[in-house]
Each structure stands twice: as C-alpha cells, then as structure tokens.
C-alpha cells in the first residue's frame, strides 16, 4: 500500500465523509485518510482503499460506510477540555441562566459530543455546584454523528490516558471506579446524560429549546456554507438568551448567525431576540444553505 491514497480514491472517501457529516478534509490533511482507515482495512481483510470503496459501493447504506466515516472523523476530546471555558460556564454562564430562568428547568445540549467527556464534565460540574441546583430538573442531551462514539459515551468507561487528560483528581475519586486498567463512571453521573446519534445538520432526535448549547471543535471542520447551516440548526433550538459555547478559536463572524458574542466571556455566544422560536417561520427560514 502506498503512503498516500491516489487522488481519485481520496476524493471518493472525502465525498463519502462530506455526504454523511458535512465535514471536509483539506488538501493538506488528505494523507491522513490512508492511515486512519488502515485498522478498518485490516479488520475487514481488505487490501486497499479501492477495495474498501468497492465494498462500500456494493452496500451503500451498510455498516462499512459508517465505519469508514467514523474512522475518518476526529473524535478527540477530553474531560474539562479548555478548563478556562468550563470555569466560565460554572462561574458566569450557569448562574446567569439560573437568575434569568422562569422555571426550575435546565436543558443543555452538547452537539458533537464525541465519546462523552464534555457532557459528563458538565454533569460532574453541576453536582459540584451543589445545593443551588437541588430542586431543579436538569437534562443534558449529547449527540454525535458517529454511532460508535455515542456507544462509547453511553458506556462511560475510559482509559487511564482519557482520565489523565483534564479530569481533576477529586472528580476521579468521587465518580469513578477502577476496572482493570480502565475506569468506570458511576451510574449517578451517567444517568444525568441522554445520548443520541444525530447529525448536527439534521438532528432528528433532538427536540425542544435549550438554555445552554455546546458545539465545540465541530464547526471547525465544516466549509463556510455548512457552518452557516449548522449555526441555523443550533439557533432553531435556542430561545432568546440561550448561551452557545464554541471551541477555542472558533468564531461566528460573517456567518449571519443569530448568536452574538458575549464580550466579557471567551468562546461564549448568546442568542439574540431575532432567534425567538415563537416566530412561525423559525425552522422554515433556516433550510440548509448550500
């Protein structure tokens, strides 16, 4: 096998990825396709990327296509990733939501949640915040386009390496038990989070309005028009005053989004009045831009 996939082969795989997730692979990163798919080729006894494509084409909606897409996605995540942002959520965003709430219901959506660390970090944080949420109903819904990532997330079992990256020692002692070389998250935290395998561009199992939406390190891999469509989708689940958290370095400038930057809070945006979901044209006006 050559180190880099031939152009037309890489092209086909990129198109598959883009069709299923909206994500694009820049020219500079195409060389990674081959190495990311190598384990799948080996597991399926396929000798080349062309053989993989042929097998996918024989069964277009089948599991192999999903597995190939999954292998090409970047699922990197960690507990309390960019801890400064989590501190901002804890110290500023959640208290503001709480102060402005009309009922004691907190709804959070993690879009592009990967293997669950982000959603579980929020759950642990809410527990740590203690009595202020005691009589609240809290729901955290986490979605990812990758069913495999969602499966891992649901299970709540992490390797030592996953734990090291960002999980404070007190949270480890409070919520995890060692199982062999791995660590199992307690049911108490797992039960605070619901999961569904959903594409952000067409989130079928997501419903209602959220007070806080996290979509971190996901938009980054979308081309401009897909970013625009994704923002419109997020806005459809926001009421005026809903907070949106993006990844470090991700920005909405120029996307015509209804979220405006919170000047005093890094990476945090807030839905403005125009995103009022009571408007009848809410969803219709936000068809996928292409």
């Amino acid at each position: 096998m050559t180190a880099a996939a031939p152009h037309h082969t890489a092209e086909k795989l990129c198109r598959l990825l883009s069709d299923m997730t909206g994500q694009t692979v820049s020219e500079g990163r195409r060389w990674r396709i081959e190495s990311s798919l190598r384990p799948l080729l080996r597991a399926r006894g396929l000798t080349s990327l062309d053989a993989l494509i042929a097998a996918i084409e024989r069964d277009p909606g089948g599991p192999l296509a999903a597995q190939a897409v999954d292998a090409m996605l970047n699922h990197e995540s960690s507990f309390f990733r960019d801890i400064g942002v989590f501190r901002t959520i804890e110290q500023s965003v959640l208290p503001r939501i709480r102060d402005a709430a009309r009922e004691k219901l907190l709804r959070i959506w993690c879009a592009g949640a990967s293997t669950g660390q982000e959603a579980y970090s929020l759950a642990m944080m809410l527990k740590r915040m203690g009595p202020m949420w005691d009589d609240w109903r809290i729901s955290i819904h986490a979605t990812d386009v990758s069913p495999a990532a969602i499966e891992t997330a649901r299970r709540g079992r992490y390797t030592q390496m996953d734990m090291q990256r960002g999980l404070p020692i007190n949270e480890l002692l409070r919520w995890f038990t060692a199982v062999g070389d791995d660590w199992q998250l307690s049911d108490e935290i797992r039960e605070m989070v619901s999961f569904s395998a959903d594409n952000l561009l067409d989130p079928r199992r997501v419903s209602g309005l959220f007070d806080l939406i996290l979509c971190r390190n996901v938009l980054f891999y979308f081309p401009e028009e897909t970013k625009r469509a994704a923002c419109a989708r997020l806005a459809a689940f926001a009421r005026p005053g809903t907070y949106l958290v993006l990844g470090a370095g991700e920005m909405l400038t120029g996307l015509g989004s209804r979220f405006v930057s919170c000047r005093d809070l890094n990476c945090i945006y807030i839905a403005d009045r125009r995103s009022d979901p009571t408007r009848p044209d809410r969803y219709a006006s936000e068809t996928l831009a292409s």
Partner: peptide, 10 residues
C-alpha cells in the same frame, strides 16, 4: 505534554 498541561491548568 497535553496531560501535564491539563494538570497545570487544573
């Protein structure tokens, strides 16, 4: 590096 960085941040 990532691990140490995250611990120093914590």
């Amino acid at each position: 590096r990532d691990t140490l960085e995250s611990k120093l941040q914590i």
